[in-house]
Amino acid sequence: MATRAVIGYALALGREYNKDDIAAALQASVMPHAARASKIPAPVVRPGGGLPSGVIPGTAWACWGTFHFEAAKAHCAKATLERLTQVVGCTTDNGPLGQKNKRALIERFFDQIASHFAHRLAATTGGSRRAVERVLNDVGEKTSLMMTLDELEDVIDVLLAKYNGEPHGRLGGRTPLEAMHFLLEKQDSLLRTLPVARSSALCLLQEARVVAIRGDVSRGERPHINFEDVRYDSRVLSGIAGLIGKQLRIYCNVKDIRHLHVFHMDGSELGVFLPRAPGALRHIRCACDRKSSH
């Protein structure tokens, strides 16, 4: 609120974002941001731009004391808020009921994104015969005019990084990053970071999936788990036949299930599991595509 800086984001591919998208955005807001290796040569971040955790020393793993949110269903899920308060150690605030202006900053931000970047093309012809909307409304066989998912992520990353480097009138002409620098220099105690032990548990912001440990000692089938029709295991699990039939909690990024964070039901960590079935990575990409389209 004090600096207007975007500290993290996640791209939701469905018609509406859901609790998994919220968890991904929360994780990205705490973890150090790594600039993308852009596949598009033209978009570049202006000097002085970027996301705070990637350009301001000491802000990696920084977190908030109060989480202000809009009263949307994905935000208000009780389990999501409970995980957030437990993992990050913050309080939550939905603000006064019926007073949307209390969250006007967020609305203005998305208005700016819509006017400078995102535009609905359906039934739009633009303001002139040469308007780009006319061309993009029906690309026909000109597939080069279409944007891939990687290109979209590149553009969004640059857009938000540039936003943090643009002067704001309400910040006295400073950019969001300059305002953050200024506040931290005045009072470094403003910054609260997650302990190392807690930062490694950010996966717990996601919703847990419960799976059973499979295997058959008599047939020489080592303990493993199945997720999205793919077999996962680890060296630790493979050597503990006594766990067959027990249940585990798994946490994963639903858009990238190439590895799973696995815990016993009592909360103790079992480690990271990787896919072992032949062709698993190809199947996983297909599974992610299906989830994204839902």
Rank of each mutant, 00 (worst) to 15 (best):
K39E: 07
K39Y: 01
I40P: 00
I40V: 13
I40A: 09
A42R: 05
P43W: 01
V44Y: 00
V45G: 04
V45E: 01
R46G: 02
R46Y: 01
P47I: 03
P47T: 11
P47D: 13
G48M: 04
G48L: 02
G48Y: 01
G48V: 01
G49V: 00
G50V: 02
G50S: 09
L51K: 01
L51W: 03
L51H: 03
L51T: 00
S53N: 07
S53A: 14
G54D: 03
V55N: 05
V55W: 05
V55C: 09
V55F: 07
T59W: 04
T59Y: 04
W61I: 04
A62C: 11
C63T: 15
C63G: 03
C63W: 00
W64M: 04
W64H: 14
W64R: 02
G65Y: 02
T66L: 13
T66A: 09
F67Y: 15
F67D: 04
H68Q: 14
F69M: 09
F69A: 10
E70V: 09
E70G: 11
E70M: 09
A71R: 15
A71S: 12
A72W: 06
K73N: 09
A74W: 00
A74E: 05
A74Y: 01
H75Q: 15
H75W: 03
H75C: 05
C76S: 14
C76Q: 14
A77C: 08
A77Q: 05
K78D: 02
A79I: 05
A79W: 01
T80E: 03
E82A: 13
E82G: 04
R83P: 00
R83G: 02
R83W: 03
L84D: 00
Q86Y: 05
Q86C: 10
V87Y: 01
V88S: 07
G89D: 08
G89C: 07
C90W: 01
C90Y: 02
C90V: 04
T91S: 15
T91I: 04
T92C: 13
T92L: 06
T92W: 02
T92S: 06
T92Q: 07
D93G: 06
G95A: 08
P96G: 11
P96N: 11
Q99I: 07
Q99P: 01
Q99F: 15
Q99T: 13
K100G: 14
N101S: 08
A104R: 09
L105S: 12
L105C: 12
L105K: 12
I106L: 11
I106W: 10
E107L: 10
E107I: 08
F110L: 06
D111T: 05
D111Y: 03
D111P: 00
Q112K: 07
Q112C: 14
Q112S: 13
I113T: 10
A114P: 00
A114T: 08
S115G: 11
H116R: 13
F117S: 11
F117D: 08
F117W: 12
F117Q: 08
H119F: 12
R120K: 12
L121S: 06
A122Q: 09
A122C: 08
A122V: 14
A123Q: 13
T124A: 14
T125A: 14
S128I: 03
S128L: 07
S128C: 15
R129I: 00
R129F: 10
R129L: 14
R130C: 08
R130S: 15
A131D: 15
A131V: 06
V132N: 07
E133M: 12
E133H: 08
R134V: 06
V135Y: 07
V135M: 09
L136E: 06
L136G: 02
K142G: 03
